[in-house]
Amino acid sequence: MKVPEHVAIIMDGNGRWAKQRGLNRVEGHKVGAKVAEDVSKWCADLGIKYLTLYAFSTENWKRPEEEIKFLFRLMVEYLGERLEMLLKESVKLRFMGRVEELNEETKQFCRQIEEKTAECNRLNLIVALNYGGRAEIVDAVNKIINEKLVNIDENTIRKHLYLPNVPDPDLIIRTSGEKRLSNFLLWQSSYSELYFTEVLWPDFSRENFIEALEEYSRRKRRYGAVIDNEK
Rank of each mutant, 00 (worst) to 15 (best):
T175D: 07
S90I: 04
E147W: 08
D45L: 13
A33K: 06
K19T: 13
L129C: 08
K19S: 12
S176W: 13
K49Q: 13
Y78P: 05
L149N: 00
Y216Q: 02
I144N: 08
Q20K: 15
A8R: 01
R122W: 00
L51A: 08
L83Y: 04
K148E: 15
V138Y: 10
D203T: 13
Q112F: 03
W201Y: 11
W42E: 07
G80C: 09
P169H: 00
I157T: 01
Y216A: 01
I152K: 07
V3N: 00
G80W: 10
N103F: 08
T52V: 02
L194W: 06
K2V: 11
T58D: 04
A135T: 15
K34R: 12
R221L: 12
I137R: 04
C120T: 05
R206A: 03
R82M: 02
T156M: 12
E81N: 14
A140G: 01
D139T: 07
T175I: 08
R111D: 02
N229D: 13
L186N: 10
I152E: 04
Q108H: 11
F70W: 12
E89C: 00
L129E: 08
R222N: 10
E89M: 02
R122V: 09
K231H: 02
E104H: 12
A135Y: 11
I113H: 09
F209Q: 01
T58N: 11
W17N: 07
E136V: 05
F209K: 10
S217V: 06
N121Y: 06
E59R: 11
I9K: 05
Q112S: 14
C43H: 00
R122N: 14
E66G: 04
A36R: 02
L200P: 00
